[in-house]
Every structure is written in structure tokens, then in C-alpha cells.
């Protein structure tokens, strides 16, 4: 089928709208200084921290998010639709609100945080762990939504068949359910990771901003924008390239899965 002209035109405008800011970024990129900027110790430190924390957030999201998706997709507990709304809330909430809420919950005077402090002498804010928690909070819904959709569309008869053949519930989950949604778990995990990598608002309000401990690349970009624009642009470019490579790889896989 040929694409109608208005659709083509609007699609082109839509694409240009998304593309244009990136062209602006490329145009402002100080190409000759790029290698020295990207390898600057403070930039490398922020990059390393970002990659470590976003990977940790991704793993935490998988460990907690896949079971959560399963419960949301397969069980009929009361209040499930409310639970689903709550789980996806961080996707639509301003991240800075999420960060403040995390502080109210896990800060040293927080709902739970005060007991962590009193009983175990654990203080989460302003630590690298807080960065991971903030990223997980904001990015886990991307994984949950993806995996839940996949679980809903898989055929439960495979699981029933496994059960009739004598597999226990855990075995069925592990050997039948999980492999059937594995591509979606991967896709959701990558989306989740990309979102964690770009996390700013929740991180800065819950984890603060300190070089080497909590200053991830997005925070460093924000701070550097006021000091050294070139360094900020160089770091932005690195984030764009990493995200783009991952998303392209993800899209290929995505299409293969969906046919």
C-alpha cells in the first residue's frame, strides 16, 4: 500500500521535530576537543558511576519487576487495577516528585528511614545506593509494563500442559513461563536500563550530588552546563550515542519478536 501524502508529510515533520534537537547538539559539539573531554578524569568518573548504577538498577528491576509483572498479569487479587496504576505511576510522575517521596520514605526522618537509621545505623540519602534506588523507582515500570503485556498475550495452555505433565508451580514458572517471555524481559530490561541511565530528577532530590559518589552523567551535565558547556555537550553526546546504539539493537530484536 502506498502511504497517503498527508501521512507522509506529517510523519516527516514529526521525525524532523525529534531529530532537530540532536542535530543542534551535534552542531555545537566541540569535535576537536571531544577525545580529551570524554577522557577527562571527572567525566570518566561520572560515566563509570552512571554505567554501574544503571546496571544495578536494571538487575534490581528484573529481580523485583518480573515477579510483579507476573502477579499483575496472572493473579486475580483484589485491587489489582489500582496496584497496576500505582506501579506505573513513576512513569508519569515528575521524577523530582519521586525523589522527594523517596526522601520522605527512606530519608533519615522518613517513614521507614528513621528506623533504618535508629536500628541499623543505615543512612541511604547521599549514597550510591540511593542513586540505584532512585533509578530503579523511576525505571522499573518500563520493565513491568513490557513483561506484563507479554505475559498477558502468551498462551496459558503451555503452562497448563506443563502442570498436567507433573511440573510444580515454580518449575512451570522457571521452565515454561519465563522462557516464553524472555525476549520481552530483555526488551523491558534494556528500556529500563536506558531510562535509568538518563535519570536526573529523582537522583538529585534523593541522592544529592557529589562527584564520585552520586554524581551520575545527567547530574554532571546539569552542573557542567553552568561551568563548562563543552564538557556538558561532550557528555550529552556520549549518553545519546550509548542510548541510540542500545535502542537500535533493541528495536531489531523487538521486531523479530513481534514478527
Amino acid at each position: 500500500m502506498t502511504t497517503p501524502l498527508p501521512v507522509r508529510v506529517l510523519a516527516a515533520v514529526g521525525f524532523a521535530f525529534v531529530l532537530l534537537p540532536f542535530l543542534g547538539l551535534l552542531q555545537r559539539t566541540p569535535w576537536s576537543q571531544l577525545p580529551s573531554l570524554v577522557t577527562r578524569p571527572d567525566v570518566r568518573q561520572a560515566l563509570r558511576l552512571s554505567i554501574l548504577t544503571s546496571l544495578a538498577a536494571m538487575f534490581l528491576a528484573i529481580v523485583l519487576g518480573v515477579p510483579l509483572a507476573w502477579v499483575l498479569a496472572r493473579t486475580h487479587i483484589p485491587g489489582r487495577s489500582v496496584a497496576r496504576a500505582i506501579v506505573t505511576l513513576p512513569m508519569v510522575l515528575p521524577p523530582v516528585v519521586g525523589g522527594a517521596a523517596l526522601l520522605f520514605a527512606l530519608g533519615r526522618n522518613g517513614l521507614v528511614g528513621q528506623y533504618l537509621d535508629d536500628w541499623f545505623d543505615i543512612r541511604l540519602p547521599f549514597t550510591t545506593v540511593a542513586v540505584v534506588l532512585a533509578q530503579t523507582f523511576v525505571s522499573m515500570p518500563f520493565l513491568v509494563v513490557t513483561v506484563e503485556a507479554a505475559l498477558r498475550s502468551t498462551d496459558v495452555r503451555y503452562e497448563q500442559a506443563a502442570a498436567t505433565l507433573g511440573a510444580g508451580r515454580w518449575t512451570t514458572f522457571r521452565r515454561v513461563t519465563l522462557p516464553s517471555v524472555a525476549p520481552s524481559v530483555l526488551a523491558g530490561a534494556v528500556l529500563c536500563w536506558a531510562r535509568a541511565l538518563g535519570e536526573f530528577g529523582a537522583t538529585i532530590s534523593f541522592a544529592g550530588n557529589l562527584e564520585g559518589r552520586t554524581e551520575t552523567v545527567p547530574l554532571a551535565i546539569y552542573i557542567e552546563l553552568q561551568r563548562d558547556r563543552d564538557a556538558a555537550i561532550a557528555m550529552s553526546l556520549v549518553l545519546v550515542v550509548i542510548s541510540l546504539v542500545v535502542l537500535v539493537a533493541l528495536r531489531d530484536r523487538w521486531y523479530r519478536v513481534q514478527g
Partner: peptide, 17 residues
Amino acid sequence: TNEVDVKSLLGKIESND
């Protein structure tokens, strides 16, 4: 923590964080 502006720094002092 190195906060992005004076208000955000003060907010964390105000909340006793």
C-alpha cells in the same frame, strides 16, 4: 551533596535531611 541551587539545599536542611 553539592546542591544545584540555594533553595534545594535549604529544602534538605528544612526537612532535616
